[in-house]
């Protein structure tokens, strides 16, 4: 446990929108996680990162994340497809995925949970709320939950 604590937790943010990337960064600014935040901007890149191929062939550049923040609506391969691929993969299945989206459509929520998503955060419109949500998330996943190694 202690050893894990020592190792900085890696978070993979899958987000196509540069502004939203900026907002997420800003929400994480206060935490130590910011330094280990990895950002990819679409579903294909996310899979490249997770399988350490293409631009992410160097394992040092693409450490296995402890948490994935995944946007649902993205060009090309969208969040739902990425989620499906992760949950189908024996290796990747254990990585907790938190959906970050503007969509609060019931259908999306239900489908995501069905696909095995661990949490769901609707992007709040106000920055204050978003920061709180990210902080809550950090607290929950990295302080309370014992993650499988």
């Amino acid at each position: 446990m202690t050893a894990q604590r020592m190792k900085p937790a890696v978070i993979l943010l899958v987000e196509d929108d540069p502004d939203d990337q900026e907002l997420t960064k800003r929400a994480l600014r206060s935490s130590k996680l910011l330094n280990t935040l990895k950002i990819v901007s679409d579903g294909e890149e996310a899979l490249d990162y997770l399988y350490q191929r293409g631009n992410y062939a160097n394992p040092d550049e693409a450490p296995r994340p402890e948490l994935i923040l995944l946007d649902l609506n993205m060009p090309k391969l969208d969040g739902r497809a990425v989620l499906t691929r992760i949950k189908e993969d024996e290796n990747l299945r254990s990585i907790p995925v938190v959906i970050l989206t503007t969509s609060s459509r019931e259908e999306d929520v239900a489908r995501s949970y069905h696909l095995g998503v661990n949490s769901y955060i609707t992007k709040p419109v106000r920055m204050e709320g978003f920061i709180r949500a990210i902080q809550d998330l950090e607290h929950y996943w990295f302080d309370l939950v014992v993650l499988p190694s």
């Binding site: 502004d19 907002l23 800003r26 503007t102 992007k123 419109v125 106000r126 920055m127």
Partner: peptide, 11 residues
Amino acid sequence: PLRKLIAFSDV
């Protein structure tokens, strides 16, 4: 864009 307008106004 609307969300960005509001969020970045806060920022």
